[in-house]
Amino acid sequence: SFNTVDEWLEAIKMGQYKESFANAGFTSFDVVSQMMMEDILRVGVTLAGHQKKILNSIQVMRAQMN
Score class of each variant (00 low, 15 high):
1 S>K: 12
1 S>L: 13
1 S>M: 14
2 F>W: 15
2 F>S: 07
2 F>P: 08
3 N>G: 14
3 N>S: 12
3 N>Y: 11
3 N>Q: 14
3 N>W: 10
3 N>T: 12
4 T>D: 08
4 T>L: 06
5 V>L: 04
5 V>R: 01
5 V>Q: 00
6 D>M: 08
6 D>S: 12
6 D>N: 10
6 D>T: 07
6 D>W: 12
7 E>P: 02
7 E>G: 08
7 E>C: 07
7 E>S: 09
7 E>Q: 09
8 W>T: 00
8 W>G: 00
9 L>R: 01
9 L>Q: 03
9 L>K: 00
10 E>T: 08
10 E>N: 08
10 E>A: 06
11 A>G: 13
12 I>G: 03
12 I>R: 02
13 K>N: 15
13 K>C: 14
14 M>C: 07
14 M>W: 01
14 M>F: 05
15 G>M: 05
15 G>Q: 07
15 G>I: 05
16 Q>F: 07
17 Y>M: 01
19 E>P: 07
19 E>W: 09
19 E>Q: 13
20 S>M: 14
20 S>Q: 15
20 S>A: 15
21 F>Q: 00
22 A>S: 11
22 A>L: 10
22 A>C: 07
22 A>Q: 12
23 N>E: 11
23 N>T: 12
23 N>R: 14
23 N>I: 11
24 A>K: 08
24 A>H: 14
25 G>D: 04
25 G>F: 03
25 G>P: 01
25 G>K: 05
25 G>T: 02
27 T>S: 08
28 S>C: 07
28 S>A: 07
28 S>N: 13
29 F>R: 04
29 F>C: 05
29 F>T: 04
29 F>I: 12
30 D>I: 11
30 D>W: 11
30 D>H: 13
30 D>N: 09
31 V>G: 08
32 V>A: 03
32 V>F: 02
32 V>L: 06
32 V>Q: 00
32 V>P: 00
33 S>F: 13
33 S>Y: 11
33 S>G: 06
33 S>T: 12
33 S>Q: 08
33 S>I: 14
34 Q>E: 12
34 Q>D: 07
34 Q>L: 11
34 Q>S: 08
34 Q>A: 09
35 M>T: 01
36 M>K: 15
36 M>N: 14
37 M>T: 07
37 M>I: 11
37 M>S: 07
38 E>S: 12
39 D>F: 02
39 D>R: 01
40 I>W: 02
40 I>E: 00
40 I>Y: 03
40 I>G: 00
41 L>S: 06
42 R>M: 10
43 V>H: 01
43 V>E: 00
43 V>Y: 02
43 V>G: 05
44 G>V: 02
44 G>T: 02
44 G>D: 02
44 G>H: 03
44 G>P: 05
44 G>L: 02
45 V>R: 01
45 V>Q: 00
45 V>N: 01
47 L>M: 11
47 L>A: 11
47 L>D: 15
47 L>C: 12
48 A>Y: 10
48 A>W: 07
48 A>V: 12
50 H>W: 03
50 H>D: 14
50 H>T: 02
51 Q>L: 10
52 K>C: 13
52 K>L: 13
52 K>F: 09
52 K>D: 12
52 K>A: 13
53 K>T: 15
54 I>M: 06
54 I>T: 00
54 I>N: 00
54 I>Q: 00
55 L>I: 08
55 L>F: 15
55 L>G: 03
56 N>M: 13
57 S>R: 04
58 I>G: 01
59 Q>D: 14
59 Q>P: 04
59 Q>I: 12
60 V>Y: 13
60 V>E: 15
60 V>I: 15
60 V>N: 09
61 M>I: 15
61 M>G: 03
61 M>S: 04
61 M>K: 04
61 M>H: 05
61 M>P: 02
61 M>V: 10
62 R>E: 09
62 R>S: 08
62 R>A: 12
63 A>R: 11
63 A>M: 10
63 A>I: 10
64 Q>H: 15
64 Q>W: 06
65 M>Y: 04
65 M>L: 12
66 N>A: 14
